[in-house]
Amino acid sequence: MDVVFVEDYEAMSRRAAEIVAGQIRQKPDSVLGLATGSTPLGLYHLLCRWYAAGRLDFSAVTTFNLDEYIGLSPTHPQSYHAFMQKHLFSKVNLCPVRCFLPDGMAGDVLAEAGRYDARIEAAGGIDLQVLGIGRNGHIGFNEPDDHFAVRTHRAYLSDDTIKANARFFPRLADVPREAISVGMGAIMKAQRVVLLASGPDKAEAVHRAVCGVVTPRVPASILQLHRAATVLVDADAAALVPEKWRHAGRIHIG
C-alpha cells in the first residue's frame, strides 16, 4: 500500500483523475471499478472535462460499480444508477451495454450477486478499482464484521452508514437498509486500487486503515495487503496519521 498525502480535495481529485486517465490511455479497453458518494465527484468532473476537451476516449472501457441499494430502481433519483448517469455516464462516450451495476430490484438477490461476480470474471477482472472509505472504515458496502465477505453479497448497512447517507434522502426513514455490494475478492484481485479519503470526518477511518492492524472490523485495512493499492489522503483526512509520515508526503506499507 502506498499512501500519498496531498493538500486538499482538489489536489486529491486531480491526482486520482490522472491515475484513471493514465490507465485508459495505456489500455483503452480497461475495466474500471467505480464508486459513488461525494468523494469521487471531483474525479468524475475532471474526467468529463478532459473527455469534452478531446483528451480521453471511453468508447472501449467497461465499468462495474461497487454497489446498489436493494429496493431502488435504476430511475430512482437516489439510486447509484442515477448517480452514475448524472455524474459520468451521460457526459462521456461510455458504451451503455458495458456499464454494469447490481440490480437493486432483483427478486433473487443471491442469484443477482452470483451473476454480477460472473460478469466481472468474464470481463477479465478489474484493471483499476476506485474506492472511497466510510467513517467506520467500510469500502463499498463491506461493513465492519467478524470476517471479510469475499463474493458479491447482500449487505446490511450499519447505523453509521445509514446516518451518513441520510443527507441524500428526505428523511432518515427513507434511507435503504440493505444493498448489493461487491465483496473483497474482486477488489483484492483488481490489478490496481485507488482509495480516496477527504475531510476531517474520515480521519479516524484513515488512521485505523493505514496505521492499524488488518482486520475485518476495519474493512479498508485489507488494502495493506494489496500489491498495488494507492491511498490518496488530503490534509484533513490525514490529521491522525503520524506527523512524520505526513511530512514525508508518501509512505509505503507492507
Rank of each mutant, 00 (worst) to 15 (best):
F5R: 03
V6N: 06
D8R: 12
M12F: 00
A16W: 03
G22Q: 07
G22H: 07
Q23M: 14
I24R: 01
P28E: 10
P40E: 07
L43H: 05
C48Q: 09
F58C: 03
H76E: 11
H81D: 14
F83A: 05
L88R: 01
C95V: 10
R98S: 08
D103S: 07
A106H: 08
G107S: 12
G107K: 11
V109F: 07
E112Q: 11
R115W: 01
Y116L: 06
R119H: 10
E121T: 14
A123P: 05
A123D: 04
N136P: 09
I139R: 01
F141T: 02
N142Y: 07
P144E: 10
T152P: 10
A155W: 04
A155F: 06
T161F: 07
L172V: 12
A173D: 15
D174W: 08
R177M: 08
E178C: 13
A179T: 06
G185M: 03
G185Y: 04
I187K: 00
A190H: 05
Q191R: 15
L196T: 01
E204A: 15
E204Y: 09
A205R: 03
H207T: 00
V210A: 05
V210H: 04
V210I: 15
I222T: 02
I222V: 15
L223T: 02
A228V: 00
V233P: 01
A238K: 08
L240K: 14
W245R: 09
H247R: 15
A248M: 13
G249Q: 12
R250I: 12
I251E: 00
G254A: 14
